[in-house]
Amino acid sequence: MFFINVQKWWQTIKIWWGQQTAYRLNFFLQVIGPPIVFFCVKASLWKAIFNGIANQKGLDISSTVINGMTLDQMISYHAWAMIVGFLSQGMGSFDLSNDIRLGKISTYLIYPFNFWEYHTAGFLAFQTLQIPTTLLSLLVFSSLKIIALPAISNFILAILVCFVISLFWFSLQYFIGLLAFWLEETWIMRVMINIVTTFLSGAIIPVSFFPEQLQQMLVWSPFPYMIYWPTKIFLGQTESILFGVSILIFWTLIMGFINTTLWKRGLRLYTAAGM
C-alpha cells in the first residue's frame, strides 16, 4: 500500500515537472526572471543611497554604514533574500483556483488521488525544480563575491527553515485558491498578499529598518519569518530559531485548519456542469 502511494506521488510529481518545464522560456520569464530583476533594482537603489550618504559625509562608500549595515552587507542581504524566495515562495498552486472555477475538481472527486494530494505534489514538484535555480544563483553570487557561503550547519538549518516557510506559503496560496468557490477572480487576493508580504517580510527593506513599534507588532505575524529571518540565518545569525519555526508552524496549522473548513464548505456550494 505504501509503495503504491509513493508511486502515485512520484508519477504525479513527474507530470507536474513536465507541465512546468514544457515552455522553458516561459518558465524562465515567469519564475526566475522577476526575482533577478527585483534583485538588480534593489541593488541599484541601495547603491545610490549609500553613494549619496558617502558623498555627503565625505566617506568611502565601502565604509559608509546605514542602520548598522554597509553596502556589501546590504547587497549580500538581498542576494540571500532572493535565494530564500526561490526556496520558499513557489508558484505551484497557481492553477488551483482555475480547477475550481472551471469545474475540473469533479475529476479529483472520483480519482484515487485527491485534489489536495494532486496540488501538494505540484508544490513539491515546483520546490524541487527551484533547487537547480538556487544552486546556480549560489554559484554566481559566490563567484562574484556578493555572498560568502555560511558554515554547512547553518546552511542546512536555513534550507530546512526555508522548507517550513514554503509549507506556510503553500498553505497561503492554497487558501487563496480555495476562495475561487466564492470569488470570480482570485488573482486580486494573490496580488494583495504578494504586496503585503513583499513589504512586511523585508524583501525590499530589511525589517530592522522599520520603526520599532512596527517591528514589535510583526513579531507575532508570519511576515518577518518569510524573508528577513531566514536571510539572517544564511548570514550566520541563528538566534531565536525555535521561536521563529514555532511561529511559522503555528500559522501553517492555522491556515491548514482554515483551508480544511473552506474546502468542506466550498464543496457544498460546488456544482459541476455535465455531472
Binding site: I195, I204, F209
Partner: peptide, 21 residues
C-alpha cells in the same frame, strides 16, 4: 494597498537617510 506599500517603503528608507540621489 499597493499605493500604501509604495509610499511607505520609501518613507521607511528616508527615516535613515536625508536624500536618495
Amino acid at each position: 494597498i499597493f499605493y500604501a506599500s509604495t509610499i511607505l517603503s520609501v518613507d521607511v528608507i528616508f527615516q535613515h537617510v536625508p536624500e536618495i540621489g
